[in-house]
């Protein structure tokens, strides 16, 4: 495993692999989101209770999943960075913070808009919603650290450790609907006893989740590429100065 990491810790070698993946995932993201939206907005049936408002689910649920996945990714990258000290993991973690902010924000906003017709209120202070809002603020804190410390080695460790400390929130978000009686409904896809959503709704949901996943990879690789090239440019300029 470590050998494998070593092979791709070299930024140039990583970019060689990353650029084709970036292109493929960009195209894949476009098509899966496009087809997913057609299924979600036109072909899937309206819910017998919630009528047409159920279509907000196809944005809300995938972006909530993706924001959790983004934080998990940042957490794991930070752990790998702290253990093996490969700067590439740190770049990956840092560049996924703005994407995480966008996903979290869209999940919060779409959730609020969905809450009004179904619960009768935009916002309640229940466990799931509050812990998700805390996740949003932790993301903002990571962004603050990333911007204020810029690229000093001190800032790198600060970032990695903060994302480590913030990881406590993930299990709380996941299990908040089981531990407390919340207004937010419990998990209906990943749960013991099988899926409780009909196949016609499940297909667009998974398509949208897959699309957002590809989108995440695409945006992440684009910003990582920019970051690496910027760094090599700075190194090049410094080497010119020294000569």
């Amino acid at each position: 495993m470590i050998k494998y990491f070593h092979k791709f810790a070299n930024p140039v070698r990583f970019l060689k692999l990353a650029i084709p993946i970036k292109k493929i995932s960009g195209i894949a993201a476009f098509f899966t989101i496009f087809i997913g939206l057609i299924f979600a907005l036109l072909l899937s049936p309206p819910d017998y209770q919630q009528k047409e408002t159920v279509r907000i689910m196809y944005i809300h649920v995938p972006s909530a999943w993706m924001s959790l996945m983004t934080y998990g990714f940042i957490f794991l990258s930070s752990v790998f960075f702290l253990i093996w000290r490969f700067p590439l993991f740190l770049i990956l973690a840092k560049e996924s913070v703005p994407i995480g902010i966008i996903f979290t924000f869209s999940a919060l906003i779409s959730g609020a808009l969905w809450g009004k017709p179904t619960w009768g209120t935009y916002w309640v202070w229940d466990a799931r919603l509050t812990s998700f809002l805390i996740l949003f603020f932790i993301f903002l804190g990571l962004k603050l650290i990333k911007d204020t410390f810029s690229n000093s080695s001190k800032g790198n460790y600060t970032f990695a450790y903060l994302s480590l400390v913030g990881g406590f929130n993930l299990p709380i978000i996941k299990f908040s609907v089981d531990w407390w009686n919340t207004l937010h409904q419990p998990a209906s896809i990943i749960r013991t006893g099988g899926i409780s959503v009909s196949n016609e709704m499940l297909a667009p949901l998974f398509l949208m989740a897959l699309g957002l996943f590809f989108l995440f990879i695409y945006i992440l690789l684009v910003s990582v590429e920019i970051n690496i090239k910027e760094k090599s440019l700075i190194n090049f300029r410094d080497s010119l100065k020294n000569n």
């Binding site: 603020f137 603050l144 650290i145 204020t148 903060l162």
Partner: peptide
């Protein structure tokens, strides 16, 4: 404690400290 240690040596320490610590105090 860890957050106070994290922000050591930063120029704008006070605001960052407050911003980072409050989300962790909420639970």
């Amino acid at each position: 404690m860890p957050i106070s240690a994290l922000t050591l040596g930063s120029a704008a320490r006070g605001p960052i400290l407050v911003f980072l610590t409050i989300p962790f105090f909420l639970p």
